[in-house]
Design a binder for these strands. Structure first.
Lengths: 263, 263
DNA sequence: AGAAATTTGCAAGAATTTGTTCAAAAATTT
DNA sequence: AAATTTTTGAACAAATTCTTGCAAATTTCT
């Protein structure tokens, strides 16, 4: 779609290459013609990107590396730090009361919360997460899926189509997962379509609650998915720094910190 | 028959092999023809995948290493006579070509069809069935869920909210399951909301294909979910009566009858 | 503008990958 | 248990892709 005649500088090309690679694997020849440079140049860019561990080079092309900017696949992610995630989910559960209308976002922490919802009654649960939906199928709660395009890596429904249903709903409390949480800018995630859906939800919610363990804090990913001003409550663990807490409180964000686990 | 336009890079092949293996396609020869590469190359890929402990090689093919990863997301209820349903699904699969945009309804026969879609490439699959969605999660096809209220008994999304997304879509071929199929009145089902969603889909589809084994024919349920005039093709088994076939042909419905099984 | 530094494109040699062939190994049948 | 068929592993050739050195072009700095 972009055949620019103007010469591109290497940082610009690398950005374009990364964007192309986000859609999957790309071969050298294709990148060369899309960017209008020789294959040798593409190779050099890829070498540079590989040194930054952003890309994995393979014979004939390259694919995005599973770096901190990319999500681990769902199965792995769930097992990284289950104890911490469950503590955060427990704290979040305290915010949910019988007969609430809540939204559950994707992500393993929110997934942990969904497992606990049997302890509440008569909820209306709206979600874009197929994992959460599977969990709640037999729960007896009213369950609404937002619909939209399926994103395999996060097992969520995302993209413009989600707007059709989300705009018809009203949500009391939205429980959001995230890839990165930056106390200055807000939440970020890897996929612009996923970010888009998150922003839609935030607009339709009375209270926005972010569930993020402290390893997410300070991390920035590709696409901004909700600014600091949109967030009402952050639930996290004790790994968060005092400085960050102060900064968030200045932005009127309530910070809930789980108790330290005794090991 | 297979669409082999460009060369695939080894990571792409490995991805496809993993997908195929998840579906039970496990012989070297099958993988070789699916991917359009020689058997030696498939073997080399399998060796690589085995080194990553993603696959276990056996004489004649390979099997996936971690089975309890993707399978138990949505529990599957054992079907009553899977043989007949699979035959119907096989016949329906012949109506689907690479790059089609299709809709998959709920029901076990349509579910059987969804399992076979790995044999097609680059489909856009729209569905309201969580079972079908679970099946297609790793398939590589584009997958769109319609969203809406979840009905536990059928594991489908139904009701007025589904209209928001369905009305934004256009469908080539809709594969519909049903509870009852009456040659005079059409399809019927037990839940009015489910019937409502079925009718929406039928309105947005070029070709409406009903998958119903002969035990459904003549049965009428509570809520009408699609008149005879809306139906283009019926795929069923040889239990259908000649009289019914005549009646349907008068209504311009093509009847596809599966071959009798030899046991 | 001119010079220095960096980047880009090209091409030859090196390295990978892929398909084919064939003997050894494994499974199946007689 | 022997014979037949099938599958596997290894070696080799052909084709593609990668690396590297070098000249031309572009950008940057003074």
């Amino acid at each position: 779609m972009a055949s620019e005649k103007r010469k591109l500088l290497s940082p610009e090309r690398e950005q374009l290459i990364l964007r192309a690679l986000n859609k999957g694997i790309c071969r050298i020849e294709q990148l060369s013609s899309e960017l209008g440079v020789s294959e040798a140049t593409v190779r050099r860019d890829l070498v540079s990107l590989e040194e930054q561990t952003k890309v994995r080079r393979v014979h004939g092309g390259a694919i995005i590396a599973q770096s901190p900017k990319t999500e681990p696949i769902f199965a792995e992610k769930a097992s990284i730090n289950p104890g911490e995630k469950n503590l955060i989910a427990e704290a979040a559960l305290e915010l949910i009361h019988d007969s609430d209308t809540i939204y559950l976002d994707g992500g393993s922490t929110v997934q942990a919360l969904s497992k606990m919802l049997v302890r509440r009654k008569n909820l209306t649960v709206i979600t874009n997460s197929l994992m959460a939906a599977a969990e709640l199928m037999e729960s007896g709660h009213r369950l609404i899926l937002v619909g939209g395009e399926f994103r395999a890596i996060s097992r969520t429904l995302i993209g413009p189509l989600t707007a059709n249903i989300i705009s018809a709903l009203h949500i009391d409390k939205a429980f959001m997962g995230t890839i990165g949480f930056n106390p200055d800018y807000g939440m970020s995630t890897t996929d612009p379509n996923e970010a888009y859906t998150k922003e839609l939800i935030i607009k339709r919610s009375n209270v926005v609650i972010v569930l993020a363990d402290s390893s997410k804090i300070g991390v920035s990913s590709f696409a901004l998915s909700g600014g600091i001003a949109d967030i009402d409550i952050l639930v996290t663990d004790s790994g968060i720094s005092q400085k960050t807490i102060e900064k968030l409180k200045k932005n009127k964000i309530e910070v809930i910190i789980t108790q330290q686990e005794n090991s």
